[in-house]
Design a protein around this nucleic acid. Structure first.
Lengths: 144, 144
DNA sequence: CAAATAAAGGACATTTTTGTCCGATTAATG
DNA sequence: CATTAATCGGACAAAAATGTCCTTTATTTG
């Protein structure tokens, strides 16, 4: 469904949000440790998220990554997915056809539209804050 | 969503079914031409489908691929997807966690279960015959 | 201002997916 | 029975995704 990079990106963003709720700024090393991901690869992905203004980065000692409380509401999952995987999930044809639309649909077109609409709705309506608080109260987990 | 191999596999299977409805057996070359896919790669995928008894192959002159009318009803999309992509789509965690289940869910677990259940239902209930007849009456298209 | 710390970014390495080529096998036909 | 046409299957090639390493840049602190 998502690329590995995107999975790491979402997990990282949720962890950063969780720690930001405690006023903690976190380093790549800590993030990679806590979400069980390769450090250097995770660093790349965090750069992407930072460039897309999804998370905030601070260089130098005491630096690291954080997310402002307001941004946790504003940042929805679809923004993270788009920043990392692009919009292939939303746009492309399920069977890989270049020209596939309501006028000239592939055999799966209509059935795919339904599922993708649901997926899209879910991603657009799920905020980082929602995911982070689920973690905070121990309802959900990020590791393993 | 699906791998390229799986996209080609579905398109090929639908085309074979369509032609089998006319009593025609088709070659790899014709299939690749008609579904706009790389010939040799398509051949590999057809082998997989053949080994999984999803399509039937005949060697030698006048040989090719075909699907019996009854099998078009019996073969559902999920069987093709499983034969080519395995069950990652149905089983894995949306965020890539190894241990993710109702007891120890990732932050997206519940929302993913919903979408995947829909996808799974769709794939399990869609037969090759249904897709082939859509093509036959000109409601849907396979190329480009 | 020097040292230390952390992200940024470029180059490179590995693995997986996608795609190609060619000889072996099978079967039909003259 | 030789030729031919088709799939099968293994080895290889190219491209994309995943992952690593190392230098540069920014910033804090003593």
């Amino acid at each position: 469904m998502f690329s590995k990079a995107c999975e790491y990106g979402i997990r990282a963003a949720v962890y950063i949000a969780l720690q930001s709720l405690d006023g903690r700024r976190v380093s790549v090393n800590e993030i990679a440790e806590e979400i069980d991901s390769p450090i250097a690869f995770t660093a790349k992905i965090l750069q992407q998220l930072s460039r897309n203004n999804i998370i905030h980065s601070v260089k130098g000692p005491t630096g690291g990554f954080q997310i402002a409380r307001e941004d946790m509401d504003a940042v929805k999952l679809n923004m993270i997915v788009k920043a990392i995987d692009g919009d292939a999930i939303y746009v492309g044809c399920g069977l890989g056809l270049k020209e596939c639309n309501a006028q000239k649909p592939c055999p799966l077109h209509d059935k795919f539209v339904d599922i993708r609409t649901d997926l899209s709705k879910m991603l657009k309506s799920t905020s980082l804050y929602e995911l982070a608080t689920g973690l905070e109260v121990g309802l959900t987990y990020l590791k393993r």
